[in-house]
């Protein structure tokens, strides 16, 4: 067992099959045959409706508290101020441009990160030699927050898009590579043996057993990686950005422009949430075969 294995199971890396999300109770509990199915579906829909209602109430309450605090003299913009600022920023195209710039960076960094992480994770899990060669570097970079790489990245890569995307790439890569690796090493030996006695050779075993068996781990890694990507974004946009949600907020900070900061925060939250939901949907679709407790 290496440090890698233990770390991956930490709170930052929910294991596949476990609920990593408060809304996960709507996960398919199995497409059971027979009479039980309709009741279960109805119950599930009922529970889901209740959850949605509670979510809505919670959001409304949160806004009410915010409003109260703002009117009570705290240094906060009121909700209507933020809404009107959002209108302005949408109207003059600023918000659209910023969101697009940020989203592009996150998507490119995240896509590159996972695209590299998945094969590297597979290779590490499959070949002991490669694991020995790669693992120390991953361990090393894991201990450095991606933001701490930023100065180096700027000096080495200049101040255009490259260093920004690089740090996002790094964050996504590290989260996803460990998860993929874990997925590969935890594939049930019996399944590999079952494939072997049915005549499968290494390549077939890899494609038809190891890859599907690791999918839940990879998807969890991608979700964690996406979170890291967004977390790194704002800081990445510290580097002489011309646009982007993070840049807009830092700019607003100079002028004590709280409504704009709020619009930025809320936009990042909504975009991050949307992307996470898309991944969650993919995860549910691709791992429907998993037994859930």
């Amino acid at each position: 067992m290496s440090v890698l294995d233990k770390r991956g199971a930490g709170p930052g890396h929910p294991l596949p099959g476990q609920s990593s999300d408060a809304l996960d109770d709507t996960a398919p509990g199995g497409t059971g045959q027979g009479a039980g199915r309709t009741t279960r579906t109805r119950q599930r829909t009922g529970r889901r409706g209740l959850t949605l209602a509670l979510n809505a109430v919670s959001v409304a309450l949160g806004i009410a508290v915010w409003w109260l605090l703002a009117s009570a003299g705290f240094k906060l913009p009121t909700p209507p101020e933020v809404v009107s600022r959002a209108r302005t920023l949408i109207g003059d195209g600023t918000l659209g441009t910023d969101a697009l710039a940020s989203l592009t960076r996150v998507l490119i960094g995240f896509a590159l990160g996972t695209a590299v992480a998945i094969p590297v994770g597979f290779l590490m899990g499959w070949y002991g030699i490669l694991r020995g060669l790669i693992e120390p570097w991953i361990q090393f970079f894991r201990t450095i927050p991606p933001l701490a790489i930023l100065p180096l990245a700027v000096v080495a890569m200049g101040i255009d898009e490259t260093p920004k995307i690089f740090v996002i790439f790094l964050a996504a890569f590290l989260a996803c590579v460990i998860s993929t690796f874990q997925g590969v090493v935890s594939v049930d030996r019996t399944l590999i043996n079952a494939a072997r006695v049915l005549g499968a050779k290494d390549l077939t075993i890899f494609a038809r057993v190891v890859v599907p068996a690791s999918t839940p781990f990879i998807l969890v890694g991608m979700r964690v990686g996406l979170g890291s990507a967004w977390a790194t974004l704002v800081a990445a946009e510290l580097i002489a950005a011309q646009e982007g949600l993070g840049y807009r907020m830092q700019n607003a900070q100079l002028y004590y422009d709280l409504p704009t900061i709020f619009v930025g925060l809320i936009s990042i939250g909504i975009l991050g949430l949307l992307m996470d939901r898309i991944l969650l949907l993919a995860e549910r679709r691709l791992t429907r075969w998993q037994e859930r407790r």
Binding site: N193, A194, Q290
Partner: peptide, 11 residues
């Protein structure tokens, strides 16, 4: 071969 724990491919 039939294994102790079924060893069906769950996916």
């Amino acid at each position: 071969v039939i294994f102790q724990q079924y060893a069906l491919f769950p996916w």
